[in-house]
Design a protein around this nucleic acid. Structure first.
Lengths: 320, 320
DNA sequence: CAGCTCGCTGCAACCAGTTGCAGTAACGAT
DNA sequence: ATCGTTACTGCAACTGGTTGCAGCGAGCTG
């Protein structure tokens, strides 16, 4: 068995509570005792057992981050920023991937729920109803999904999408397509609502569609057949897949059809053609989500009191 | 407070141990009792506390996966395969990222060590000495690093690198460069050893160098100045960074200098030029690492016995 | 009918820490 | 000398499950 707090206590001739305090409340124990305990702990190779600690304290000092697809280049910068933010506040971040499957989303939240203090769920695919159930079990921050009463970080994709469409209109396009995302995606709905009534532009919606490169390739035929001269794709990955698919069909981009992506995750300078896109501040989103999560967890502990002056107090007698 | 096993037991009129067993050893409890307990547990919203469970059992049913850089496209396929393999055997996989920092590697192993049953460490940057200390604390599988007495999954990058160099020689190149990886990388050493004595080829080594796109851009000047006509880069990311950097200097690839990458992670069909590379079976590596880890954890528990027939047994008397 | 096994359930110890409370010694103030 | 305070340390209960052991009826065997 591993070396426990009792082994250390015994080897030091002190009580377990003293050892416990040298680690969790160092100021409460005599400096001399503390150094002795630390020395013995070091010598014995003692490591606090986090399971036992979290059993009594109810805290784990871990956070969970759930994303739809690790292989989508949109996520890594977000994850890295979130991890840095967590570490800056002495939390560890565990990452998991749902493979775009709402069922796994729920399963992962359940699996996480007892081993982390809070969860950041990015681009959820579950229904609002399912999410409402989940968010009750543990502190939650959603990214790219708006939900009543839940802390969220959303990017103003609607504005960006509309600007993109206006850009197409400005170039002289009159009939364009929107390749929408997976059906559970809030972002996809936002985009769709935002681009349906751009002046001077007729928009056909193609989808729902898988938010991957393959999804883009697969949808190329329908785009080519739609009689459009411009396309706004759900994300960059779909956009480049679409360009590949069109290319294979002999349709040139941008000569025959213009393509715009969303999210700015494809940064490679060697891509041809260089992708026009709606950039998103993904790293900021990751960092803010974690900061908000940590803030929301501690917020509940500090409730302010205030003095209510009624009629039971007065200046002492004898004063003017 | 959350609903505990005791609440369920009380509401059912059974003892806590019965409730415990309905979850962890269902076959030991009467079918009728079991359904009653499950119904009440469902109604009360009971969720087993994993911290408490792991305290007694010593198991967590979690595995940890540590990678150097999530944003390197080499890793996501490996991670996803590992996650699938873990889930197939009822484990959850937690992922963390070290930012290429050996110190964080050690820190993460420590943080993980009490919350997971085993760790897969990919492309470690720590020294062998540091790793030897770490692997003693918990079941371990290393990917892309060979270490005495530790289960490892390595890809035969040496062979691939040599083949790549022979390819350059075959094209008529006589003086080439190797852009090596970060100093802690085992793979980088393997590559270097493998390519120093290719017949008919003079090889200059440039590096150590950051294994990122920026690292590739940054090294372009030294490559251009080395008087070589071909380059083998530590990985695909460095290769494309290098091509970008050369491009900015007016050096054309492959017209002026040929570039080969390693790992095959850059799959985009739109890259120009399409990158010649040494492909690696990353998904297989992820899957196998997890399978080996799980096997190594259970191996110690099942030791076979066998009958040794000596002289203390014989057929009963009276038989022919 | 005694003696058995068998299936199920309860009892209580145990995992490795944390923490409220009480006790003690040293010290300064009255 | 007495009292109160301060700084530390020990005691023991507690967290939420798991599990070896014992008890207890029911059914089976001889």
């Amino acid at each position: 068995m591993a070396v426990t707090i009792r082994d250390v206590a015994h080897a030091c001739g002190v009580h377990v509570s003293t050892v416990s305090r040298t680690f969790s409340a160092p100021h409460m124990v005599n400096a001399e005792t503390r150094t002795r305990v630390l020395a013995v702990a070091e010598r014995l190779g003692y490591r606090p057992n986090r399971a036992a600690r979290s059993l009594t304290t109810g805290r784990t000092d871990n956070l969970g981050l759930i994303v739809a697809d690790l292989a989508n280049p949109f996520f890594p910068p977000l994850i890295k920023a979130a991890q840095a933010a967590a570490r800056a506040q002495d939390y560890h971040l565990f990452v998991a991937d749902t493979d775009e499957d709402p069922a796994k989303e729920e399963e992962l939240v359940m699996a996480f729920s007892k081993q982390v203090d809070g969860i950041v769920l990015c681009s959820p695919r579950s229904s609002n109803k399912a999410l409402e159930r989940l968010v009750e079990t543990i502190p939650f921050v959603l990214v790219n999904r708006r939900l009543r009463g839940v802390t969220t970080v959303v990017m103003d994709v609607a504005r960006g999408a509309r600007t993109a469409m206006e850009h197409l209109a400005g170039l002289g396009h009159r009939r364009v397509a929107l390749v929408s995302g997976p059906s559970g995606s809030w972002t996809s709905g936002e985009i769709r609502r935002a681009v349906t009534d751009v002046p001077g532009l007729e928009t056909v919606v193609i989808g729902p569609n898988a938010p991957t490169e393959e999804g883009g390739v697969a949808v190329a035929g329908r785009v080519a057949a739609a009689g459009v001269t411009g396309v706004l794709a759900y994300n960059d990955l779909v956009a480049i897949g679409l360009i590949e698919g069109l290319d294979e069909m002999g349709v040139a981009v941008p000569d025959d059809i213009s393509v715009i992506g969303i999210d700015g995750s494809i940064t490679g300078r060697l891509y041809r053609p260089k992708l026009t896109t709606v950039a998103m501040p993904t790293a900021d989103a990751g960092r803010m989500a974690v900061d908000l999560l940590i803030k929301s967890m501690s917020a509940a502990t500090v409730l302010e009191t205030h003095l209510v002056v009624r009629e039971s107090t007065a200046p002492p007698k004898g004063l003017p």
